[in-house]
Simulated scan of single mutants.
Amino acid sequence: SYANVADRSAEYVRGIPVIKAFAQDKASYGKFADAVKFYHFSTMKWWKQSWLGKALMTAAMMTPQIVSMPFAFYLYGKGEIGIETLLLSLILPISILPQALAIMMSFELFQMASNTWVSIQELLDMPAQKRPDPDKRAAIDNNKGIKFTDVSFSYHDGTEVLHKISFETKPGEVTALVGPSGGGKSTIAKLLAGFWDPASGVISLGGVDTKKIPFHQLAEEISFVSQDNFLFDVSIRDNIRLGKPDASEDEIIRAAKAAHCHEFIMALPGGYETKAGVAGGAMSGGERQRITLARAILKPASTIILDEATAYADPENEALIQEAISHLVKGKNLVIVAHRLNTIKQAHQIILIDKGQIIAKGRHDELLQEPLYASLWRQYLGEE
């Protein structure tokens, strides 16, 4: 009941904009109030069931002190025990009782924590990713691209979400992953970034299996721009510099100009010293995306992964972001997960994915002959 009231409280506070927009204040507050009432009811019922036992237990634990003190003085008065035994009989109960009470309270804490421990144990039981030591750097050939060979993937519940995915990219070319929502596009991007390991098959970068590339080296080679762009609550300069910690001021500004965010940064009161806010909250969605693109442009990585990079952009920002993406292509592997099909019309290779399988590969004009892609294109144009 405590976990339930905590969940309802968080839901009520976070959902205030939706609650107000849809006039659901009574219904939403009703759920929150019901959770509080149930917590009050269950707590009081618990206390009614346990207060007598707890009172008796506390009384029993205090009894040794109540009995030992007069009995010790009685025996000492009769000369049957010495002063050392008397002092010991007075000190021991006082020393033991607080520890006994702490042990009694620990059982209650253990009971409260036991439910949470199940999910913690599930996390701890998940197999750890294994990579070579950081000093054993792999010999990555930047003239070779990305290669997926019969890659399958399952989450920890055993449900397979990717089925024998195979494709290859070339440096300097754009590869786009498209398809219906839930088809596995973002999963492929995260597997390439090394967030997870495939259940079977091989993912290679520059001719080397990613499992044989140390974590730090793989992070150097890959720049990942996710759909939910995250900025730290530090200056915009420091957020961009994450891509290259030792970057000079000129390099930062060049990257910002290439990502078309220099102008709006300079219009801010603090310029590049302006803080981005908690999780980038001081910036709009389009501004956050362009700042993260500047970070990706600055980072000397051989592979760029853009997971729906224009998700929160308006048409003007989308055009600027598309131009910024063109600066990423030169000599690098560029993989784009896209829902807006007009953003990947010029891609060198479009991979159509549905239900964890590759349905077709090719350029935009070629894939228009594929029914699923043609349907997605018509939906984008508003014709279907």
Rank of each mutant, 00 (worst) to 15 (best):
A3E: 12
S9D: 02
G15A: 12
P17S: 04
D25Q: 15
A27I: 15
K31C: 10
F38G: 07
Y39A: 14
F41R: 14
S42H: 11
S42L: 06
S42N: 12
W46H: 11
Q49H: 12
G53P: 00
M57R: 04
A60D: 02
M61P: 00
P70A: 13
I81F: 06
E84Y: 11
T85I: 14
L86T: 05
L86I: 07
S89W: 13
L90V: 12
I91K: 10
P93Q: 03
P98V: 00
Q99F: 01
M105G: 02
M105V: 03
F107A: 02
L109K: 12
L109N: 12
L123P: 04
R131Y: 15
A139L: 12
S152Q: 08
H156Q: 14
L162T: 06
K164C: 07
E168C: 04
K170V: 12
P171R: 04
V178I: 14
P180C: 05
G184R: 06
A189H: 07
A199S: 15
S200V: 06
S204Y: 04
G207W: 02
P214I: 08
Q217A: 05
F224G: 07
V225W: 00
F232C: 02
V234H: 06
G243C: 07
K244M: 13
I252Y: 03
I253D: 03
A255L: 05
I265H: 06
A267W: 05
A279V: 12
G280K: 02
Q289K: 03
Q289P: 09
A294W: 05
A294S: 13
P300I: 08
A301I: 04
A301T: 03
A311Q: 06
I321T: 02
Q322R: 11
A324S: 11
V329K: 15
G331C: 06
V337K: 03
L341N: 03
A347H: 08
I353A: 00
R363H: 07
E366W: 06
L368K: 13
